[in-house]
Design a protein around this nucleic acid. Structure first.
Lengths: 216, 216
DNA sequence: GCATTGTGTACTGTATACAATATTGATACC
DNA sequence: GGTATCAATATTGTATACAGTACACAATGC
């Protein structure tokens, strides 16, 4: 059972549903009727509705008005689109980081990168993806741009869903993780432009293509 | 009374509340208790709650758990942050536009720009802001990047709220509107980089500073 | 066989009721 | 006079009930 920091039932249900979607337990296209979820969680339909609606704002579920909600399906086109946006946003983050604090941030990033590598070593993909998300979010947070951070956190949910659906081959994922170290070293040396270009390769390679027809 | 395309009460209330906030009728910091809104709109609290929660996802209202919701206040720092993100996203849009369709898109853009100028002429600021939003959204839509479009539409709500709060002096607003024509001409001539740079000036100048202490 | 209509079911959308918590104002105390 | 305490009130959070709509599937006609 996942951790639930907040105490309203709405929040708890939201967190649990999100986890179920991002872990692949609830797959793209699956119906999620309010009543059966209410039974499953042992609460009334009200907090379920609020959770579903919040998930819909994040694009994780799609609500068909007066009918039912389903877990969203990500098209290959959408994956490409998200990759392009992510490159822009994270490049902005790199540009925004105060040069004096490069070392400090690299230190934090390296922790996440190490956790990624470790999880990769023991074949724990879920943790790889989780720590990779934290790596990228840490990069974004280093910008101290609140609007940027909030957009990237929102986008991250969609990216995690995409990750689960695409099922990247092991060798590619491994190659991809190696780029973390390269980017960090560039950042530490103040090679901002090189780092931004590597980020472009990194994200484009990771998120584009490799997507099943219907996220099943 | 604003137009309400969708038919659920939730959607109608959402649209009306959003309009009231973006028109400045509901100012930053004002409490919005569910029950009084329910009376005002003649519906139960349920659709009101859903509308408020949606507005919270867009950052237009802030929910204090178990207490009340208030119309969000935008800090000058937040305005700067939003401006930076907007520049990145719209520059990506420009980069994504298919070069063969420049002329076609410029044609659409010029309509919005003209409406802006006309509204400015008769001193109708609300319409100026509305049409300016449509101008920028049209630019974004020309990219055909669905993720980009959805993020920019979301951000637009916040930008409109910012516009109302900042109360830009007339001469600056006028100067700002003039840049639309310049950008369009650059785009038509395929001067992408120049256009992107002008966009940077345009947005930075428009959204930064000029903000009252507490959006009152 | 295929399209079309009708009926029943499942599910959502909204209203209402109640429980739980934050806020406000008054009162007592230092 | 200022601060702390407590009760009354206002407001949210959740459960439940009911109305209305969409969908699936059977029945009918061609």
């Amino acid at each position: 059972m996942p951790k639930c920091i907040q105490n309203s039932l709405s929040d708890q249900v939201y967190t649990m549903l999100k986890d179920q979607i991002l872990s692949g337990q609830l797959k793209g296209g699956m119906k999620i009727p309010e009543e059966s979820l209410a039974e499953q969680f042992g609460v009334s339909r009200t907090p379920i509705r609020e959770a579903i609606r919040r998930l819909a704002e994040y694009g994780l579920v799609t609500i068909k008005p007066r009918s039912h909600a389903v877990v969203s399906i990500i098209s290959p086109q959408e994956a490409d689109d998200i990759a392009k946006v992510r490159v822009s946003l994270e490049q902005l983050a790199i540009d925004s980081i105060d040069e004096e604090s490069y070392a400090e941030h690299v230190k934090e990033l390296s922790r996440y990168a190490a956790d990624c590598q470790y999880a990769m070593g023991i074949g724990d993909r879920a943790t790889v993806f989780e720590q990779d998300s934290l790596f990228h979010l840490a990069l974004v947070k280093a910008s101290r741009n609140s609007a940027l951070i909030s957009i990237c956190e929102r986008l991250d949910a969609k990216i995690q869903q995409l990750r689960i659906a695409q099922n990247l081959p092991e060798d590619e994922l491994s190659y991809y993780l190696g780029q973390h170290a390269q980017m960090m070293s560039m950042l530490k040396n103040g090679e901002k432009e090189a780092c931004k270009h590597m980020l472009y390769e990194h994200i484009t390679h990771d998120l584009t293509s490799h997507l099943d027809k219907d996220n099943a």
